[in-house]
Design a protein around this nucleic acid. Sequence first.
DNA 1: GTCTAATCTTACGTTAACGTTAGATATTAG
DNA 2: CTAATATCTAACGTTAACGTAAGATTAGAC
Lengths: 153, 153
Amino acid sequence: MSYKIGELAAQLGTTVRTIRYYEEAGLLTPLRSAGGTRLYNALHLARLQAILALAGQGFSLEAIRDLVQTREQCRTGDEGSQRVPARLDEVIAHIDHQLEDLQNLKQALSAARARVKQCRGCRNPPTSEGCPECPVRQHRHESEMLNLLWDQE
Amino acid sequence: MSYKIGELAAQLGTTVRTIRYYEEAGLLTPLRSAGGTRLYNALHLARLQAILALAGQGFSLEAIRDLVQTREQCRTGDEGSQRVPARLDEVIAHIDHQLEDLQNLKQALSAARARVKQCRGCRNPPTSEGCPECPVRQHRHESEMLNLLWDQE
DNA sequence: GTCTAATCTTACGTTAACGTTAGATATTAG
DNA sequence: CTAATATCTAACGTTAACGTAAGATTAGAC
């Protein structure tokens, strides 16, 4: 069973141009029909799915190429058994770092959200001077919201 | 206490150009000295830190601007109390989605790492035909590694 | 006041990751 | 076989997020 490029793009929710570009970047080399049409099998699909997942998380195509070509560049199975896990560990470590950053960001935004939701029903315009109808300090109508996001007061 | 742009950049590990660019994009408006030098206070620093965190997680400057300007664009405190939490919830939901994707990616990569680490000491070159010294199927020396990442066999 | 380093504005340069178009060829339903 | 689509290559266009350079002005130590 094989797909043409348009079918593959539809399957994975991407574009024909993107798939061709990834090939040009050395990430994915399909088979060809007699006439020159690109043909993809299930492994190509799985690989492209992986590439899209990595790219979607901000990995550059260059970094992805380094990863997918690690084994291809090894001359012996032994060398591959050293390098491939090492590379994977690097990428996983990077992802862990990202996860940590994202969780911190979520924390901060959630805290900001909790602080801001208490001011209701006030019709006065925003100001940084404090609002007479909002005696609690958190109810100031700060004009630069993101100041509040990290400012605990 | 106030910082000049170079000090601020050093504090936050970014560049002078980036800070000026963010200002140009409407994300951060510093004070000015009599001579025209930009001056930043602790709130500016906190806000820039927030912006850098969001940008580092792949949010576009346009999206960040939409977020930080949400309250500024509101005409009443009441309007702000509706829109600001809503916007924050959107961003938090987006982050949750990102977290899920990242965790799935880590899962897949960890599984691939577990599968690949068992082949050791073999000096044969990579091949997809199977290696005589590696009877177990997982020890095939696939030439396109990422195929294996998602292929359970 | 002077000297040096930092900052200012303006403007053009750069790069990754595609989008878009054109004209030729291939595939396939009927 | 034919007509409608899809795909091919090659090339130029686009956008965000800065980098870099030039020439003028400011800040701050001495």
